[in-house]
Structures are given as structure tokens and as C-alpha cells.
Design a protein around this nucleic acid. Sequence first.
DNA 1: ATATTTTTTTAGATTTGTCTAAACTTATAG
DNA 2: CTATAAGTTTAGACAAATCTAAAAAAATAT
Lengths: 217, 217
Amino acid sequence: MQSFTEENYLKIIYHLSLNTESAVQTNAIAERIQTKAASVTDMIKKLADKKLVDYKKYQGVKLTESGKNAAINIVRRHRLWEVFLVEKLNFKWDEVHDIAEELEHIKSPELIERLDEFLAFPRNDPHGDPIPDKNGKLDNTVFIKLSKLKTGDKGLIMGVSEHSSVFLQHLEKIGLTLGKQIRITEITDFDGSVELSIENKQINVSREVAKSILIKI
Amino acid sequence: MQSFTEENYLKIIYHLSLNTESAVQTNAIAERIQTKAASVTDMIKKLADKKLVDYKKYQGVKLTESGKNAAINIVRRHRLWEVFLVEKLNFKWDEVHDIAEELEHIKSPELIERLDEFLAFPRNDPHGDPIPDKNGKLDNTVFIKLSKLKTGDKGLIMGVSEHSSVFLQHLEKIGLTLGKQIRITEITDFDGSVELSIENKQINVSREVAKSILIKI
DNA sequence: ATATTTTTTTAGATTTGTCTAAACTTATAG
DNA sequence: CTATAAGTTTAGACAAATCTAAAAAAATAT
Ligand SMILES: [Mn+2]
Ligand SMILES: [Mn+2]
Ligand SMILES: [Mn+2]
Ligand SMILES: [Mn+2]
């Protein structure tokens, strides 16, 4: 069984691994986990001792099979708790992350299986991210960034790739929430901002924002 | 804000205070928290620095007003989570304590208020213990031990004062669960065991067990 | 190819919570 | 009242997770 802290490292390493084939760098972990590189090196050694990561000095880390399983399990717990908070306790999608950050460390397999059942086996969390099943299996459908669409394209909003409160509140405010249908009406040349129609309204989103919205065509 | 560990000490001290007017002893805390007296002394000093307990060397501790508030808050969280686990996730009353022991430390006042609402503001936990309200107010109705009743007395089972899994499973098995009506039919002289009728069945419980069952006449 | 910059690791210190062994205080028994 | 026992505290050590400062390795630029 891993400590709180070890679990946090495993999860961060897992998320950083998704963006790249190569090993995850010490500094990248340090930045994400809000700590110093020296501390990361210490923890990496510990995880390597426990065979949760493969580590060669100065070469970064990769999760082992068992490290990856552990990480996916934490992700599963995090996302299930987020669903609970939104669906059952009526939190908004921008309010749940920090609480789930704590709840994800509760150690009880039984608890998670029952929570999953209570929530009717949800496939996605409130931000559209897929929830790994009990065996760690993950729906790996990849969606397209809104910023990649062309004028005239239609699609459904399936998720967001940025989870900050300000960003999510902004989307809520302009009506860009999960499941809504959109159609691109224009893409401004000079700044790449996107004009789109959604529920018979015309709205404009910056390229910056468009990059973090995930669409299924 | 207190650490996990500090919270555990506060809660234990609170529970031990309930049985006595005088100060809580170091060894009593050590036994309950599964640690050594020396460790308790260290922690007591820390809690005293934070003005959560009053402490004079060799004289034991008492919670201050603010320590008591903190403790009651932890008890509130523990009992609300126990209700959640039993009512919503279908755990049995003997399975929830350890999980609630972890959940009680999640720090989010908003979470607890919403959980309370989601559960429809329960007054008692699955073991019959009262749940403090948001302001720390606690229903302090005291019930009578089954072992104090006389032949012919009738009453309702309102709670248990022992929470171990074996004990609760035993009660479940012989049908002595919360809310049931009982009537004492005989008290055996030599061992103090109690014979009672419940739902038209006659059962016999040892004096030991009878001491831990709480009754409203 | 060498110099400079960036990244990573080590060494040594700190904080939190724990422990053992020894010293000290309080309670109890004769 | 004194001796012994029981309970508590101190001193010193240790493991986990962190930090700063300095050293070492790798990447990059000229
Ligand atoms: Mn999240
Ligand atoms: Mn999420
Ligand atoms: Mn409990
Ligand atoms: Mn309880």
C-alpha cells in the first residue's frame, strides 16, 4: 500500500506520461506537484525501490506495469468522487477538483466498487474524462480540439483539457458545457479566435480557450 | 487547521472525556490510539501550544472550548459518513467504522453541509449515536443500558455502546437491531443474563452483551 | 570542441510523529 | 511514613517528506 504522497507522485507521473513516449523529467514532476526537484529525486528513488517506476539517473522515470495500475486506480477514484460530488451533492464542475484530490486517497476497494454502482457505473467524469473500470480498462477515444475545426464543422462538446476553476466558470458562463452541439461559423484569421453557434446563439471564443475544448464530430 | 494525527487525538480525548468529569490520562489516550505514552505526551504538548487542550504536567488533559468544537466537528463528519455508507452504499453497520475513520478527515465544510442535506439531515448514525448539528449542538438524550432493566420492562433499542465488528454482527444475527421493540421476560440470577422477547421470538443475551445495548423505555 | 546553460543529483538540515530507555512524579500498600 | 508500584515525562534516536546550497551530468550554443 502506498502513502498519500507516493500516490500523488504516481498520479502526476501517469498524467505526464500521457503526453509523451519518452521518460518523465524530474523538473516536470516538481512543477506539477509544487515541490523542489531535489524532493522529487528522493521520492523517485523510493518509488524505484518499490518497483513502481523504472529509473536511471539523469534519464527520468517511466511507470512500471504495477506503477501504472496503481496510478490508474487513483485516477478511477478521483473521477468517481467527482461524479458523486456533481451528481449527488450538486457541486458545480469547477468546485470538485480539490475535494476529489483528498477523497481519492481513501483506501477501500469495497468503497469504490459500491460508489461506482451507486453512481450507475458512469463512463465519464464531470469534465468529460473517461473513468477507468474496475480492471483499469480505460476508454481511450481521443477527441479533437475545437481549435482544429474548420468553418462549417459541427460537433459535440465532449470534454475539456484544462481544469482550472476560472476556465470552467468561463465556459459555464458563455454556455459551453458538456454535451452541447456547436457549429463553427467563422475563424478569424489574425488571432485564430473561433466564432460558433450554439443553441441558436452566436458566441466567440479565443484561440487559447478553443485549444482546451474537446469535440466529437 | 489540524493535521490528521491531531484530529485523531482530539477525537479520542473527546470520547474519553464523556465518561468522566476529571482530566483524561496519558495512558488512556495511548491505549485508545494504539501508541506509546511518550508519543502522547509529545502530542499533548503540541495541542496545548495550540490552545486545544489545557494541560498541567502529570495531571492529564481537558479539551478547551475550541478543542471541544474541533472534536465535535470530527465526530459530526464521522457519523455523517457512516450514515452515507449504510444508507446510500448499502454497507452493513459493522463495516463502516474504519472507512469513516478515514473519511472524517476530509477538510471541506461545504462538503459536509451538502452531505448532511443529501442525507436529509439525519439525527443519528447507524449505531444510534447522535449526530452533532452544523453548530456543534448535540442531542444528549441518555438511554438506559439493557442490563439495568427489570423483568416485565418494555423498550426500544436505540443504540449500542460498543462498536466492534464481532459485537455488531452478533446483534444482527440474533435480531437485535436499532428501532426494535423488546420486553424483558426473565433475568437469570446467577449470571445476570437477560431473556427477552422480540418480534414474538424469545432470545437470551449475556449480561456482557446487555451492558452494551441502549434502550428507551 | 569547448564553453555556457539547464537539469538533475547529493549532502546536510528541518519538521512531524513515532519509539525505547531512563528519570521523575504521584499513588498505594504495609 | 517509607517502600514499592504505577503513571508520566524527558532525552535521544529514527523514518518520512521536505528544503537549500553545492556538485555533477547532460544539453545547447558558438
Ligand atoms: Mn479533477
Ligand atoms: Mn475531472
Ligand atoms: Mn464509527
Ligand atoms: Mn457510529
